[in-house]
């Protein structure tokens, strides 16, 4: 089936079978391999992308359901050279080790802080509990998110 949507500000059209998940479509058809696929059944959160402003699990959405949607993947967080404040905070706080969960962490936190720039530490912990990380123990991820909050509060969370 032919499906058109927008990824990271670019209009795309793909031809996929109905069973193709949005995650596989992004990775295999559009070569946006920053979105990682872990469990393929909605448990690990690694494949999180932002669809029309909402963080969603791209393994639990069909590519054909993305018709007309505006999608942001980890590649689209920073369209310019350099890193966003959230990405910079991840680097500063060592909020990643192997990096497999990182795209899902970044997209989830970016969606959260864009909508709730004053999210409390408890709220951040609750939201991130849906994303598995086997390296960091989460503490540094929480620290990075708290550090990046001020940039979202001043409306500069998506500026590199």
């Amino acid at each position: 089936m032919s499906v058109g949507f927008e990824v990271n500000g670019r209009a795309v059209n793909v031809n996929v079978t109905p069973r193709t998940t949005l995650a596989d479509c992004l990775r295999h058809e559009l070569k946006l391999t920053g979105t990682h696929v872990g469990c393929e059944h909605g448990v690990c959160g690694a494949c999180t992308v932002i669809v029309n402003g909402d963080a969603v699990r791209s393994c639990l959405m069909l590519a054909v359901q993305a018709k007309g949607a505006k999608i942001t993947t980890v590649e689209g967080l920073s369209m310019e050279e350099g890193l966003t404040p959230l990405q910079t905070a991840f680097k500063k706080h060592h909020a990643l080790q192997c990096g497999f969960c990182t795209p899902g962490m970044l997209t989830t936190l970016h969606a959260l802080l864009s909508e709730e720039p004053h999210a409390s530490e408890d709220r951040i912990r609750d939201v991130i509990s849906g994303n598995l990380c086997r390296c960091t123990g989460y503490v540094t991820i929480i620290e990075a998110a708290l550090d990046a909050r001020s940039s979202y509060q001043s409306g500069e969370g998506d500026k590199a």
Partner: peptide
Amino acid sequence: VAHYQIRNR
């Protein structure tokens, strides 16, 4: 009910 991303869909 479930986690943040699941609740969005």
